[in-house]
Design a protein around this nucleic acid. Structure first.
Lengths: 204, 204
DNA sequence: GCCGGCCGATGACATTTGTCATCGGCAACC
DNA sequence: GGTTGCCGATGACAAATGTCATCGGCCGGC
């Protein structure tokens, strides 16, 4: 028998993390060597314990799963990373894959399924949830230019144009132009729906 | 020894639900008699298995935890209900308590803690996470009238006033008045930020 | 070198939205 | 019976926003 797969678990929801650790620990060939409740903590634990596979929640305080994966890629190239997420937005998957993440699964899978996927990832293969993959493909690439996306991001909380212009160090007129262009590309009637759409698709 | 507490688990995230069921099953005095992945399913399982305590996720497809709790209150008065939630918004807690929910905890607690709380609830006592309670108190009551809240809810996705008016069967002018009034009460500069604020505080 | 695309800006214009005053109807409460 | 508050509406006005044309500068590709 080969050595067990050393797993790092990072999730800010203690309930899930603890339960998951217990369940995965039941598998003979998996061993949870570290747990973390935040992005920075996950990095620290990874440095200390050098796991084979890091299972990261997408939404964590400090740094999200993709950011952690990016850091791990350079710091611990031998460590495979995978993302577990509650509500997967298409753009996240794309960002994750770009960050070298090898597995991307929703929290609706079972623990057994997760264990299988951990093995798959550890073996050097990739796994992406079919449904999330389909969403990502149908969402396609962002049609927005860099500034359009930047300005749109400042518009997500409903701020007036004057405030957006100030925060972006741009002329109010320029901001209106970018927002108008972005809304048009997204088929939205105004910047607020445009911002919501872009966020849903992971483009901001 | 007394009979074990019969627990219903409802959470759409299979990973969590399964792991939780396994962990709670380790407690001698708790037994998970049913699991559900959606609101309607939770109701059906409750009718079929008549649990002592129903542990409900707040966000589920079909009907959220509070709605399920409301139905359970009339259908199975003997069944205590409690809500488990990832990100607790103040208004949810209020709604939950109004629905007769006896426990309200975030997913950041440990499984052991949850087991204790299940026992507390089963004994007829209440438990509310202190931090969530503090948030709810500081958020206070909604200053919005019924129609203001109703119209504001239709504004959350950034729809133009004409569409809101149509969906609410109101005159556009009336809609503008309500939104203006609501935004003023919430200290927001426009209806979009007002809608966001109201949602954050659980007032819509 | 020319062209196309993005950036940043301005001006003009129509539309949408926010704000205010005001009205009539209705229900609750004193 | 009078007062108060919410509902639904209208009109008027100011401000914010969306839309369009246009400009100059810059960079990359052909």
């Amino acid at each position: 028998m080969t050595a067990p797969v050393r797993v790092l678990l990072a999730d800010d929801e203690h309930l899930i993390r603890g339960a998951l650790a217990a369940l995965l620990g039941l598998e003979d060939d998996l061993v949870v060597v570290a747990e973390a409740a935040s992005g920075p903590e996950a990095l620290a634990m990874a440095r200390a314990h050098r796991p084979d596979v890091a299972v990261l929640d997408l939404q964590m305080p400090g740094a999200d799963g993709v950011k952690v994966a990016t850091s791990l890629r350079t710091e611990l190239p031998a460590c495979r990373t995978m993302i577990v997420t509650g509500h997967g937005r298409p753009g996240h998957l794309k960002r994750a894959l770009a960050a070298g993440v090898r597995g991307f699964v929703p929290k609706t899978v079972s623990a057994q399924r997760l264990a299988e996927i951990i093995r798959t990832v550890h073996a050097g293969n990739r796994y992406v949830d079919p449904e999330l993959a389909a969403d990502a493909i149908s969402a396609g690439d962002s049609p927005l230019t860099a500034r359009e996306a930047e300005v749109l991001e400042l518009a997500v909380d409903g701020a007036p144009i004057a405030e957006i212009a100030e925060r972006a160090s741009l002329s109010p007129g320029t901001v209106r132009n970018y927002l108008s262009s972005a809304a048009s590309k997204l088929g939205a009637e105004n910047r607020h729906t445009a911002a919501r759409l872009a966020r849903e698709r992971g483009w901001v």
